[in-house]
């Protein structure tokens, strides 16, 4: 058993929580786990990347280029930024919602949506794109984008844990007053996975 997951997004979207709950869930099943996260300056609206490794005999926490089985992304452009980490046959689960960095209205750079979307369609490997930000609002909290996408992830085959295991870890991690909204977000994610 060896599973490498890369999570990308923008600082503040909850990539750290996502990598921790995946690791917690796998650990409870008796696997070794490693994560590596972006903490510090990049958290201020910068690009963030988390690595999650699950297996029987692990060493380092960093996933090599073209090593990840799954790329889980919370923001459209950040999905493309994480592509070099993904195996050619790996799966993309990504939010289509965009966060425009200040460089775009300032005219320093551009956000080429169509080009990015085209790059995510690869010759091999499954790509699941969905508006997780809208789903999070539907669940009742814009900050649950990460949990919606974990709900989608839970529907993938080949995971060393069940959707129930993953949801239980999430509910254990989040404060009590937001447990219900997170449960709802996860379930919306599960439903979205079924139809995509």
């Amino acid at each position: 058993m060896k599973l490498d997951i890369v999570i990308t997004g923008v600082g503040g979207q909850g990539a750290v929580l996502a990598s921790r709950v995946i690791a917690q869930t796998a650990m409870a099943k008796g696997y070794q786990v490693r994560t590596s996260e972006t903490i510090g300056m990049a958290q201020r609206e910068g690009p963030v990347i988390s690595h999650v490794r699950i297996g029987d005999d692990l060493t380092g926490a960093l996933i090599p280029d073209r090593g990840a089985d799954i790329l889980l992304s919370f923001e459209l452009a950040e999905t493309a930024r994480g592509l070099s980490k993904l195996k050619p046959e790996g799966t993309i689960i990504a939010n289509t919602a965009q966060i425009f960095p200040v460089s775009v209205p300032l005219g320093i750079s551009s956000y080429q949506t169509e080009t990015i979307l085209a790059a995510l369609q690869r010759p091999q490997g499954k790509t699941i794109l969905l508006d997780a930000s809208r789903a999070a609002l539907e669940a009742g909290n814009a900050k649950t984008v990460n949990v919606v996408l974990l709900g989608v992830l839970a529907g993938m085959s080949g995971l060393p844990f069940t959707a129930e295991d993953l949801l239980a870890s999430i509910l254990k991690q989040v404060p009590e007053k937001v447990r219900e909204v997170n449960r709802k977000a996860f379930e919306i994610g599960q439903r979205l996975a079924e139809v995509s």
């Binding site: 073209r66 950040e78 775009v104 750079s109 551009s110 080429q112 080009t115």
Partner: peptide, 14 residues
């Protein structure tokens, strides 16, 4: 099978 990364918006911490 080299990965083609499209041009991406500049996203620095702010």
């Amino acid at each position: 099978s080299s990965v083609a990364i499209p041009p991406l918006p500049l996203r620095t911490p702010v």
